[in-house]
């Protein structure tokens, strides 16, 4: 695994697109959250007045769920990065060259899986660092730091879900433009339509179990969560179920991707 990651590192360390997309993720995520904490989203009033509903969302322990929710949007940068890094191999035919030079097909696949795992870990560590900073500043103390700490774990699952889905799509479609287009369409539009249809047709909200939605459910929009709890309109599906389904989807991406690579011509 270490050797495979070392080879992946050689491929990306001088790749400008990688640094730009990763840099945007690292830069925009805190900037965005600073603006939200400062009251970018609020009801009524002007720049100085009004009610900032999310002002408490940056204290412990709410900060984890709140950062996690916004993180589920910023993870798009890394998903697109995974698609680009993978489809590049097809565009340059370096997937073939890697094999010709002596990689096994399964090693080529595992190198990409390892990259997805590593990016998910790094994104989660970054979320943790941001959470400490926001929570520390807004709470003034570290009390309550761990009371909803499982949400950091949820963010790891969510990252794995998004990046794994992106990897599978890239291995399947092989062309960068089309894969990115489909990824964005699916995550922002198609899945929402399918979810709505499924949920209205079935007596249980099975639409929430769709590939990316399952992990989105782990980190809902903070206000929505509050409202649902207050009105008692929860779906009755607990987080363990969503976490299990997310892991199951990751397994599906893994085995489907593996099958694609082992069975097809390159």
């Amino acid at each position: 695994m270490k050797e495979l990651l070392a080879i992946e590192w050689l491929k990306i360390k001088r790749y400008r697109t990688f640094w730009i997309l990763a840099g945007l993720f690292l830069l925009l995520m805190p900037l965005w959250n600073i603006e939200v904490a400062n009251g970018m989203l609020k009801f009524g009033g002007n720049a100085k007045g009004g009610l900032n509903f999310l002002s408490t969302a940056y204290s412990f322990p709410e900060v984890w769920g709140n950062l996690g929710f916004w993180g589920s949007i910023f993870i798009m940068f890394l998903s697109i990065l995974v698609i680009i890094l993978t489809t590049n191999e097809y565009a340059y035919r370096t997937n073939r060259q890697n094999i010709i030079d002596g990689m096994k097909r399964i090693e080529f696949f595992h190198a990409k899986v390892a990259l997805v795992l590593l990016l998910s870990v790094l994104a989660t560590v970054y979320l943790f660092v941001l959470g400490l900073a926001f929570g520390g500043v807004n709470s003034g103390s570290l009390s309550g730091l761990f009371s909803q700490f499982q949400q950091v774990g949820y963010f790891f699952l969510l990252s794995l879900d998004y990046l794994g889905f992106a990897l599978f799509l890239a291995l399947w479609i092989r062309r960068s433009g089309l894969a990115i287009g489909l990824f964005l369409l699916y995550s922002m539009i198609i899945e929402n339509i399918a979810r709505g249809l499924l949920n209205s047709m079935m007596d249980k909200p099975f639409g929430n179990f769709l590939p990316l939605q399952a992990s989105d459910e782990l980190l809902p929009f903070p206000l929505m969560q509050m409202a649902k709890t207050m009105m008692g309109s929860g779906t009755g599906i607990n987080m363990t179920t969503y976490a299990t389904i997310t892991v199951a989807w990751c397994a599906v991406y893994y085995f489907a991707g593996r099958m694609l690579l082992l069975r097809n011509d390159w």
């Binding site: 080879i7 001088r14 790749y15 340059y92």
Partner: peptide
Amino acid sequence: RKQIGALLETPNFYHYLSAFDNLEINAAIK
């Protein structure tokens, strides 16, 4: 394959890397 030098159909390299850096990847895999 690690002991075979092969050229199949087209030259396959990372477009954004230099010749020297590309060969580093070939050598790392071999």
